[in-house]
């Protein structure tokens, strides 16, 4: 299997503290990989190691199937990144900020206009970044990360500190990128809702350890649903459901339907109505992804 990013047993210690422990991250081409974990979980530390900003204490990093230690510059040519709070030169204009990076990257000047267009900052291109809102600075940071038309884009909490409209704006921006260019994206967040709406794959990290790594669909599977029925004479009603071959549980006077396709639920209701029970409530119980995430990251064990 070809991975764009593959870390093996990646660890980072700060003195006695371990910020990242034995992390095996695998990202396939074209994925939007959501790197999820509460604050202090080790997301930024991992990303800093991927970009060669920090040296790993142990373990290896392969990007584009090349060893980061050996081919750092060749790898970084094909990577764009935004780490933590956006970096910028406040005394320069948006255009000049990008120009300072462009000179180093050696891409044509027209690319500056293109990326400004993508993040919709064309109109303020010649204004000093000092006066920009956080959202604009964040967008400038994304523009900077896109300058070299990267094959791998790494964004560390790109919506952190933004207001809801800013968040939606950045989210839409990120979602459209891979479709247009076949880019692979690694995006970190401490909010599941963020990742849920963008990612195709998730890696969940807590206390420096990867505790889950799979497709977003598999994660959703854990959010099992149950349909609850509140009816008259519930124990009787439950038995008659079982008698009609419908799988159900009975708990504290409530019937739980374990099969919850529309057809099955309709059949159960029909049966009960037909046999003369009164139906007071039909409810759906849902374990949200948020619950699962919370459970995973606080209990520190895989589901």
């Amino acid at each position: 299997m070809e991975y764009v990013v593959q870390t093996t047993n990646l660890s980072k210690r700060f003195g006695k503290e371990s910020a990242v422990i034995g992390l095996d991250m695998k990202i396939r081409k074209g994925e939007i990989y959501g790197f999820l974990g509460p604050n202090g979980a080790g997301k930024t530390t991992t990303i800093r190691m991927l970009l060669g900003l920090m040296k790993a204490s142990s373990g290896t990093i392969q990007i584009f199937e090349k060893d980061l230690n050996k081919e750092k510059i060749n790898i970084l040519k094909r990577v764009g990144s935004l780490v933590e709070n956006p970096s910028y030169y406040p005394h320069l204009t948006a255009y000049e900020n990008l120009e300072a990076l462009r000179k180093i990257l050696g891409v044509p000047k027209t690319r500056i206009h293109e990326v400004l267009e993508i993040v919709r900052l064309t109109e303020v291109a010649n204004k000093k970044v000092k006066g920009f809102s956080l959202g604009m600075k964040q967008r400038l940071g994304i523009a900077a990360s896109l300058l070299n038309s990267p094959e791998l884009l790494i964004l560390d909490e790109p919506t952190n500190g933004l207001d809801p409209s800013g968040i939606i704006e950045i989210r839409n921006l990120i979602k459209q990128l891979p479709a247009e260019t076949g880019m692979t994206i690694l995006i970190s967040s401490h909010l599941l809702t963020e990742i849920d709406q963008m990612a195709t794959t998730v890696g969940i990290v807590t206390k420096g350890k990867m505790i889950y790594q799979d497709s977003i669909e598999s994660l959703r599977m854990y959010a099992q649903q149950k349909v609850l029925l509140k009816v008259s004479d519930s124990e009787q009603a439950w038995r008659s459901l079982l008698g009609n071959g419908i799988k159900a549980d009975w708990e504290d006077g409530i019937i739980l339907l374990s099969e919850h396709s529309d057809g099955k639920v309709a059949k159960a209701i029909h049966t009960l109505v037909h046999e003369g029970y009164s139906i007071y409530r039909v409810e759906e119980e849902k374990r949200s992804l948020e619950d699962i995430f919370l459970q995973m990251t606080t209990r520190e064990k895989v589901i």
Binding site: G52, L53, L76, K77
Partner: peptide, 9 residues
């Protein structure tokens, strides 16, 4: 901005 500068090639 060191982090931005040094994550360039």
């Amino acid at each position: 901005a060191w982090k931005q500068l040094i994550s360039l090639p």
